[in-house]
Design a protein around this nucleic acid. Structure first.
Lengths: 158, 158
DNA sequence: ATCAAATAGGACTGATTGGGTCCTCTTTGA
DNA sequence: TCAAAGAGGACCCAATCAGTCCTATTTGAT
């Protein structure tokens, strides 16, 4: 069904939540347990997603007491393709493309070998043109001067 | 990794092979065992894929002795999105979109609810703009007047 | 009329993948 | 010195999918 993993879905939700909580670049950090409570996602899963996002450089982890996570970029600067690549791995519809020779046993017969590249490029382009801000919607990107939202703040009706 | 299923990959290969064998609309039919031999895909799997494609109306099955399959449309008229939808199901990156209410337990918290639609549309558009002819490449679409290729015919160097 | 070839449809099984959890170590503010 | 929180890795269970097989139906050929 061409679906992406749940982890990627969670990643988008969590990053949107980080932005709403004011945990942007150089902002306050937000803890994994706090984000779990705010999003309804299980705490260990939230921690796992944040670790992955941290390795990809999409969020920054602050260790120690009073630690937590914050975004390294504002949502409009984060293309969806980057989040998917961080969580799900490289964006490629078939295993052939990056597997090189030998990955496909029907290589000698394969009539479509090497022709998936335009498809993958098209998908990548589509996912790169959409940013997390598009997914999070207005009101999710905390702007300077705005009162920081708390976890109990009402979610704006959409 | 956003990968589509192997069955979809097989479907593209098989349909490209059908075109190359001259089994286009109103053309000769090609048997499942013959296609299996020509593509290197296991015969039961070929049969399974053809059955699925037949239900979707992408190929036409002729029953009985001397039966087989033929394409219902020429490759340039078959968008890749249609093949993927036939084999893998509807193209949607998340389960939320078509599940309606109640499909997501975090619905009340979900900050990105309903915002995946533009993403799905972008993916669908990208996959609809590519036809099987693009994937099969030149030489795969048998034109009237051309000598019908046999299974042992050399595959044109690409 | 009978047989053989081939599709149609469905059921079943094994393996791969990924979601989810847990444990330990390190860091750091109180 | 302690507690809170992230970092990293290992592990287990479940869902999904690929692949196979069986049976019924159709239809041309003998």
């Amino acid at each position: 069904m061409l679906r992406l993993s749940k982890l990627t879905d969670y990643a988008v939700v969590i990053m949107a939540r980080l932005a709403r909580e004011g945990a942007g670049p150089d902002g306050r950090v937000q803890t994994a347990p706090g984000l779990a409570a705010a999003t309804g996602i299980a705490e260990p899963t939230v921690a796992k997603v944040l670790k992955i996002l941290g390795q990809a450089g999409l969020v920054e982890g602050v260790r120690g007491a009073r630690g937590g996570y914050r975004l390294t970029r504002l949502l409009p600067a984060v293309p969806l393709a980057e989040v998917i690549a961080a969580v799900d791995g490289p964006i490629a519809l078939t295993a052939c493309v990056d597997g090189g020779a030998g990955a496909c046993e029907a290589e000698a017969f394969c009539a479509v070998r090497g022709r998936w590249d335009p498809v993958n490029d098209a998908i990548r382009a589509a996912l790169s043109s959409i940013t997390l801000a598009d997914l999070a919607g207005p009101g999710c990107c905390a702007r300077p001067g705005l009162a920081p939202a708390t976890a109990s703040a009402a979610i704006p009706a959409e």
